[in-house]
Amino acid sequence: MRNLKNTLMLTLTLLSPAAIAQDLTQQLDAFFVQRLAGFSDSVKVSLRNPGNAMPQCEQPALSVMGNNKLWGNQTVQAQCGTEKRYLQVFVEATGNYVVAAQPVVRGTKLEPGSVTLKRGRLDQLPPRTMLDINQAQNAVSLRDLAAGQPVQLSMLRQSWRVKAGQKVQVIAQGDGFSANAEGQALNNAAVAQNARVRMPSGQVVSGQVDADGNILINL
Rank of each mutant, 00 (worst) to 15 (best):
163 K>W: 08
96 N>S: 12
180 N>D: 13
43 V>I: 10
9 M>F: 04
26 Q>G: 02
29 D>H: 06
42 S>F: 01
29 D>W: 04
208 Q>F: 00
115 V>K: 04
5 K>A: 15
76 V>C: 10
192 A>M: 12
125 L>F: 02
101 A>I: 01
48 R>L: 12
151 V>C: 07
216 L>D: 09
36 L>D: 04
22 Q>E: 07
123 D>N: 10
12 L>A: 12
178 S>R: 15
146 A>P: 03
162 V>C: 00
94 T>P: 01
195 A>H: 04
125 L>T: 02
146 A>T: 12
110 L>M: 02
83 E>L: 01
56 Q>S: 05
196 R>Q: 15
59 Q>P: 04
28 L>V: 06
194 N>E: 15
119 R>A: 04
13 T>D: 11
32 F>N: 08
214 N>T: 05
81 G>D: 13
33 V>T: 11
79 Q>W: 07
200 P>L: 09
81 G>L: 10
57 C>W: 09
42 S>C: 00
197 V>F: 08
172 A>D: 08
74 Q>V: 12
137 Q>C: 09
11 T>S: 09
3 N>I: 15
29 D>M: 01
88 Q>G: 03
211 A>W: 09
3 N>E: 15
108 T>Q: 03
39 F>N: 08
53 A>K: 07
82 T>Y: 06
164 A>Q: 15
38 G>M: 04
98 V>L: 02
73 N>Y: 15
44 K>W: 04
145 L>Y: 06
126 P>A: 07
36 L>N: 04
53 A>W: 00
103 P>L: 05
149 Q>A: 10
187 N>R: 12
20 I>F: 03
199 M>V: 13
192 A>G: 08
145 L>A: 14
123 D>V: 01
126 P>H: 03
122 L>Y: 01
45 V>K: 03
32 F>R: 03
59 Q>N: 14
199 M>G: 05
27 Q>L: 00
44 K>Y: 09
69 K>H: 14
13 T>E: 10
32 F>P: 05
129 T>D: 08
61 A>T: 14
203 Q>R: 13
208 Q>R: 03
124 Q>L: 06
176 G>Y: 13
118 K>A: 07
66 G>N: 14
170 V>H: 02
130 M>G: 06
165 G>F: 10
123 D>P: 05
41 D>G: 07
176 G>K: 14
40 S>W: 00
132 D>Y: 00
118 K>G: 01
13 T>C: 09
210 D>K: 03
100 A>Q: 06
102 Q>W: 04
67 N>T: 14
157 R>H: 14
128 R>E: 14
110 L>W: 03
49 N>H: 06
146 A>L: 14
52 N>H: 01
93 A>H: 10
187 N>V: 12
149 Q>F: 02
134 N>R: 08
100 A>C: 08
5 K>H: 11
94 T>D: 12
24 L>F: 00
186 L>W: 11
141 S>T: 07
125 L>G: 06
70 L>K: 15
155 M>P: 04
105 V>C: 03
57 C>Y: 02
46 S>N: 09
2 R>H: 15
